[in-house]
Computed example of a mutant assay.
Amino acid sequence: MTEQAEKQIRALMAARAEAMTSRDAEALARQYAPGVLAFTLAPPLVHHGEDVEARKAWFASFDGPIEFEIRDLEVTVGGDIAYSHSLNRLSTTPKGMPRKFELWFRSTVCFREADGEWRITHVHDSTPFYMDGTMSAALDLKP
Rank of each mutant, 00 (worst) to 15 (best):
L87Q: 13
S91G: 07
L45V: 08
K95N: 13
L45M: 12
W104L: 04
D24W: 13
A25N: 05
T93C: 04
E69A: 15
V77D: 12
D63G: 03
P128W: 13
F111I: 00
I81V: 09
L12D: 01
R10A: 11
R71G: 00
Y32G: 03
M1P: 04
S61E: 15
F129W: 15
G79V: 07
Q31E: 08
L90Y: 08
M131H: 10
A54D: 12
G64C: 05
R23N: 06
R10P: 02
F39T: 06
K100L: 05
E74S: 00
A33M: 03
E6C: 02
I66R: 10
S84L: 04
G49T: 15
V123I: 09
D140V: 13
K142G: 00
R106T: 09
T108L: 02
H85Y: 15
W118H: 03
A33Y: 02
L45K: 11
R106I: 05
M131C: 08
A33R: 05
M131D: 13
L141M: 13
T108R: 04
A57M: 01
P143L: 10
A137G: 13
A33Q: 02
F59E: 09
K100V: 04
Q8E: 13
A33V: 00
P65R: 12
R30K: 10
H124G: 11
V109S: 03
E117F: 02
E69V: 08
G35L: 11
E113T: 01
T92H: 04
E67M: 07
A19E: 13
M20G: 00
H124P: 03
L45G: 06
H122D: 01
T127N: 12
G133Q: 05
Y83C: 12
F129P: 02
